[in-house]
Write a protein that binds this DNA or RNA. Structure first.
Lengths: 234, 234
DNA sequence: GTTCGTAGTATCTATGTCGATACAACGCCG
DNA sequence: CGGCGTTGTATCGACATAGATACTACGAAC
């Protein structure tokens, strides 16, 4: 059973929800200069596409300047609003894509102390400071590998000079290098492991190799807890 | 125009795509012990719900043990597979929720050097090492505030002792404290700004206050570029 | 004033999803 | 042996979405 994490990106603006299809529509209008050509290029019906443009404009204001008649019969141009929507969508989509594509390290544990949404969670690798949902006590802490910072244990700054609240020292167990990015697997004392994504250059500078001692740090705000034992009976 | 970033969470397992509705269905079955009661509790029709269970099982194997007849008429229990699906979904959902809810700092810039997906991007605050799409040259770099590490400039480790490839020193401009988390805004020389999410405890330990000099660092793998000038004409 | 390619609008139809309904099959229990 | 509350299955209709089609309106260029 192979599980792939997926998602769909949306923007809720005023009254409407803009999805990928809408953004592709705006893109096509921008490229072709008319809604008719955009519809044809996308394989959509002109009528629906035009309706959708009006629907969005009713909610968020003008996203197009549409002209009928005139040289060439008229045409449609995007407004700056439309371009801003597209940029926002692309950024959000990239952020979500980052989450879906990146490995995470998972540590089951139990919540000890709590201050608001922040809590100390007891796990197999030690205490982790993380964001956890309000009512949870048994949780899984998950840490995105692109949030894990590696440092030489010798030079790791004193804990009070940084906002990296979680620091664990272990040994390098695996190194998988790509074109520019390397995935480093670090093993802690009993059986915990964490993965870190770092640039190849960082691998060189830290002179990482298997068996070496290394410190992995991550921020409390980058560690998220998910309630393990589910939903209370209602 | 207020824009809210939204998303829908999905898991693609073998042949099917499992969404929030499916997970809520599994949850209800688990709580009530039967598909009939689950359907009633969810306000769904039993027929559709049962069809969906079979549909999922055809793709991923048994997610329930269903018994008809017997004491109480029978009932339905979840398998461990179903529980694992639910945990995966919750983790993924939490990760996506983190992205959607967190502020990002955005820096427009132009790509200089590139090695695979990693590139040096020239921005208003200086050179940023970031992940950028293959064909882009004009990009927006966006940095999640929960990935920004704050350090005392005096104690900031030498750049070659860490995998934090991007370091910028500026002055604290704003501090907004919540129950447990504080959002710190840092201003760089000309006009660039970045936001960092840190624990309140970190604010204390770094003795953060407005006007103070501070170093903000983030990993190259946590900085993502989005193509600004869109899609090539086709 | 005719032409042309566009915008704008209304209506019909196909499609897919889901609830509603009805009924058979099952097996323990009294 | 009948009752009961399940699972299992088939069919119908409601609803929303979108394509297909047809027609009007527009305005510069020729």
């Amino acid at each position: 059973m192979t599980i792939e994490r997926e998602y769909t990106t949306k923007l809720a603006v005023d009254g409407v929800t803009i999805d990928r299809r809408d953004v592709e529509m705006l893109d096509a209008i921008d490229r072709h200069g008319s809604m008719h050509k955009a519809a044809e290029a996308l394989g959509r019906s002109y009528a629906r596409l035009q309706n959708r443009v009006v629907e969005i404009e009713d909610a968020v204001g003008p996203i197009t300047e549409r002209q009928r008649g005139g040289s060439g019969g008229g045409g449609t141009e995007l407004t700056e609003t439309a371009r801003e929507l597209r940029r926002q969508f692309d950024r959000h989509d990239a952020a979500l894509g980052g989450v879906a594509g990146i490995t995470e390290s998972v540590f089951p544990g139990t919540v000890r102390d709590r201050t608001g949404e922040l809590a100390t969670v007891e796990t197999e690798i030690g205490s982790i400071l993380a964001l956890v949902p309000d009512d949870a006590t048994e949780v899984q802490i998950s840490v995105r590998s692109d949030a894990v910072v590696l440092t030489d244990p010798e030079e790791t700054p004193r804990a009070d000079g940084t906002s990296l609240r979680n620091q664990f020292t272990g040994t390098v167990e695996g190194i998988e290098s790509g074109d520019a990015i390397t995935r480093v697997t670090i093993r802690f004392a009993p059986e915990g492991m964490i993965q870190a994504l770092v640039t190849n250059a960082s691998v060189d500078r830290l002179a990482l190799e298997s068996g070496q001692s290394i410190t992995a740090s991550f921020k409390a705000t980058a560690a998220r807890g998910v309630r393990l034992e589910p939903s209370a009976d209602e």
